[in-house]
Simulated scan of single mutants.
Amino acid sequence: MRIGFLFNHDATHQISHTIPIAAALAARGVDVEILTSSAEQRGVASALLPATANVRHRALEVGWISRLADRLLRHVAPFRRIAILRENLPAFAALDALVVPETTSTLLKTRFGLDTLKLIYLPHGAGDGAAGFQPVTRHFDLVLLSGEKVRDRMLSLGLISERGHAIVGYPKFDTVDLAATPRFFDNDKPTVLYNPHFNPLLSSWYSHGEQVLDWFASQDALNLIFAPHVMLFKRRLHTSLIHRKARLRPDVPARFRDSPGIRIDTGSRRSIDMSYVRAADIYLGDVSSQIYEWIQRPRPAIFFDTHKPDRHASEDYGHWSLGEVIESVGEMPAAIARALADPDAYRERQRIADAATFSRSDRPAGERAADAILDHLRV
């Protein structure tokens, strides 16, 4: 049995979600192949695998015409990701199953004719946004889920079947020492993590970002880590087909680069390995699924509402119940003061949400996912 693990994205943030499953399967003697579409992806995947893991690596490439087209189209469509699929069909056809942390790969079945390939999906995150609950999910043979919250919503939408899914926990946690609290400042001041999303409608960076940095630069009672979703600074133009919105992403003004008490990280490995989530005292964001990684250790959270949705009527904003919701930077100082004065105000809500979002067991999630995959393929 040959099982592939595909990493085919602009960034590397998806790798830690499924690589523990590859390691678990390889340890059981399964023929595991790691397929990557960049040298950076291969480096991160290799770093996360045990040194003893018996896996094969395959680098996926595209031709020069596709590389040129990608330069023109990457801001409006995931052209290279699709070209990687189309131009490497023999590599995928040689597999019995392919495990992926994203949904573009369903094109292998729906457009490129690989009907017999078993597609297995583990979402890279456990958030509430509409992007994680799209009809394309129905094309997967098996969907591996972090917990009851995501399972129940997918079932209610008809995205998964009773037999076509399994709750396995959150494999990314297998790669992290959750008890560790890294230090990034040489003082004991409270630290705020500002973690805006890249979505052009939902993110606070476009309208509030510079004001947020200005406020933190003007005071000396708090540290700030600015570590947005890793995709925010991968592109200049961000589009959302779901929300029919496009916006140019503002840069970080140079004056903040050397500002005391502010750490800026627009895309290092620290941005994706939970270092900042574990280090900070207050979360400041909008719609990123990182809030669910944050609440595995309950702490204050503050969310920017930049577009005034009917959030009580939509499950897309369920995470906004886990902290205070504000609409402007002018409201932010008072919200931070309340968070410092009463850091446990949302602890019980966060604890309940954490239990619903992440199934936990004495066994690592990667092992549980490996069980589910082998059980499914043996049927």
Rank of each mutant, 00 (worst) to 15 (best):
F358A: 07
A246P: 02
N8T: 05
V30H: 09
K149F: 14
Q350Y: 08
K149N: 11
D305Q: 02
L85N: 07
I295E: 09
Q211E: 15
R297E: 08
P90V: 09
I302L: 12
G127T: 01
F140L: 13
I262Q: 04
A23D: 09
F226R: 02
R297P: 00
V62D: 10
P135A: 13
A365K: 07
F173Y: 15
G125W: 02
V76Y: 11
A254C: 05
I34Q: 09
R338S: 14
L322H: 07
Y317V: 00
P190S: 12
L122E: 03
E61C: 14
S146K: 06
L232R: 01
F184M: 09
N88D: 10
I167Y: 02
V150C: 12
A345T: 01
A126M: 15
H319F: 09
Q290N: 12
I3F: 09
L107Q: 11
L117V: 01
R368F: 09
L122P: 03
M231A: 15
Y317M: 00
I3R: 00
L142S: 02
S288C: 13
G43L: 10
R67D: 15
T175L: 13
G209I: 06
M1I: 03
S259F: 10
S66I: 06
R236C: 07
L213S: 06
H9P: 02
T306H: 03
G267D: 10
Y206D: 01
V55F: 13
F185M: 10
R138P: 08
A334I: 02
I84A: 06
A24S: 13
A339R: 01
F140G: 08
R67G: 14
V192A: 11
L248G: 07
L119H: 03
D214N: 10
K172E: 10
Y194E: 05
T266N: 15
R58Q: 15
N88K: 05
P300D: 11
F140R: 06
T266E: 15
R263Y: 11
R236E: 14
L89D: 03
A69R: 12
L237A: 04
D258L: 13
S16T: 06
R28Q: 14
A59R: 15
E367H: 06
A91G: 04
I302D: 03
T18M: 13
S259T: 12
P190V: 01
R86N: 05
A94S: 14
D10S: 14
W215A: 10
A353W: 05
R151I: 04
L155R: 11
S203M: 02
L145W: 07
L122F: 14
